[in-house]
Design a protein around this nucleic acid. Structure first.
Lengths: 156, 156
DNA sequence: TAAGCTTTATGATTTCGATCATAATGAAGC
DNA sequence: GCTTCATTATGATCGAAATCATAAAGCTTA
């Protein structure tokens, strides 16, 4: 298991068709690959988005810390419970049929931080559709587009 | 937080458009609404699929048990870590563009246990598309369709 | 500064899934 | 048994998103 001390790391998987699926976007303070404490294989690739400092912990250490330190265990549970909520929200997002609505919801959730390409991958849409949706939303006046590549939800 | 002693309960949410999104399908032995130990609101509706026996635990009891009993805390972490993996797999599934491939992957993951309607909701597809995909897969000889409403992956 | 790459952006076309419609089957309740 | 309802199933049509194509902008890096 890993602790991201600084920087940003994305966990991604690739579908058989070759598109990438972002599973988790870790920022400073996040833990990475928690399930690996209990299972033997990694299923994701970790891609650092910025220069990052990562601390690695072997399985035994983590299990020992949980056994000894109940505050650590509780904090761990809290962390994972938060992740579960995040995943549920993500599933909810992907259930939105209309590309425009999905992009809007994604923006509202603050998911557009990196490139539009990454944003599109997270939303499960082609980047062309996302560009188009962003253009439409800008035309509708629901999104601000100050400069090329910059999109921001209007604080209506 | 709840413990499902017997039966089956689905956690669902509804999108603005009204479609339902299955967040979690709990079967006997699963816990439900773990994040509620740390947060104040439920976001999902729990729908029992069968007559079920559910034990309710208030937040304090769970927090106390985690603090006192490190084995309990560890088991809890393990449970949640498993859920995280399940959600990741689910996201991966939803990233599959082709309905046919998605249905096939869903079958392979053993997600068709209840009705095809529920299966479709889980896959984020219309049930008509799922019926069609199942019919095609049957025609292709990749799926067995012994009787109406029964579909099984061929053990090729 | 030139070459090569990625990201941003939009236009044209196609395809596939959603939607609408209809009907048969089966289960639950009266 | 009969009625009612949900599920299963398929056909027809439509529309939206994917795909294909192209190009400008920006950023690396040599």
């Amino acid at each position: 298991m890993f602790f991201l001390q600084s920087g940003a790391v994305n966990l991604i998987r690739h579908t058989e068709a070759g598109q990438k699926v972002t599973m988790f976007r870790a920022t400073a303070g996040d833990t990475i690959a928690e399930p690996s404490v209990f299972s033997d294989h990694y299923h994701c690739d970790a891609i650092s988005q910025q220069p990052s400092v990562v601390l690695a912990f072997d399985r035994q250490s983590v299990l020992a810390a949980m056994a000894k330190d109940s505050a650590f265990a509780t904090a761990f549970v809290k962390r994972l419970a938060g992740q579960v909520q995040t995943y549920r929200r993500h599933l909810e997002l992907l259930a939105i049929r209309s590309a425009k609505d999905r992009v809007l919801a994604g923006l509202a959730d603050g998911r557009l931080t990196g490139t539009v390409l990454d944003f599109a991958a997270e939303l499960g849409l082609s980047h062309e559709s996302v560009y188009r949706a962003l253009a439409e939303l800008t035309r509708d006046g629901r999104v601000e587009h100050p400069t090329r590549g910059q999109y921001r939800l209007k604080p209506c």
